[in-house]
């Protein structure tokens, strides 16, 4: 199995980039910024991050994320509190995680290997959003708290599954 970036794949896979671009652009459309400004901000941040990753991805991997995260933050803060914006905001954040996992400086298939971690985040987001939709009278913080609780339970379950339980008795054989 060969490693390292595939030739011509310095920017990561086109699929994750397109997914992130689509999610942030859609989030920009439903956000609170003026027409075309929101999509431009979202797409601009993603394109800037992709360009930085292609140019300086090996030297400063963290800095390449800043434009995309900043764009997402601007769109989130300016968005009107409507259901579509809430859903698209969460999906854009998940798409960002998938794009981060698809790092071209590492062996290909980062997105696939990161499936479990991203699925855990998606499950928490789903629970939070479901609670928010099911109980509209409650403030959204309750939904977020529910998601947080679900995530903590998931975390504990994985920890218990991962580390072997020790027994105190000596286990003497007959």
């Amino acid at each position: 199995m060969s490693s390292g970036p595939a030739p011509g794949a310095r920017g990561g896979s086109a699929f994750t980039l397109a997914l992130l671009l689509g999610a942030t652009t859609a989030f920009g459309f439903v956000g609170g910024l003026a027409e075309f400004v929101g999509p431009a901000v979202g797409a601009g941040g993603v394109v800037a991050s992709a360009w930085l990753r292609r140019r300086y991805g090996l030297a400063a991997p963290t800095a390449t994320l800043v434009p995309a995260v900043a764009a997402l933050g601007v769109l989130a803060v300016s968005a009107a509190p409507v259901t579509s914006a809430e859903l698209l905001g969460g999906l854009a954040a998940l798409a960002l995680l998938l794009w981060i996992a698809d790092d071209p400086s590492r062996p290909a298939g980062g997105g696939r290997r990161a499936f479990r971690a991203i699925a855990a985040c998606a499950a928490s987001l789903g629970i939070a959003f479901g609670l928010f939709l099911a109980l509209p009278a409650l403030p959204p913080a309750v939904g977020v708290a529910g998601g947080l609780l679900a995530f903590v339970l998931l975390f504990l379950a994985v920890l218990l599954e991962r580390f072997p339980r020790t027994t105190r008795d000596g286990g003497a054989s007959a």
């Binding site: 989130a76 968005a79 960002l96 913080a141």
Partner: peptide
């Protein structure tokens, strides 16, 4: 506004989910 909260949720969980 709940929108920043829903965007924040995956960002806050991701480091913990990675540690899983």
């Amino acid at each position: 506004s709940p929108v920043p909260l829903f965007v924040a949720l995956p960002l806050l969980f991701a480091p913990f989910a990675s540690a899983l």
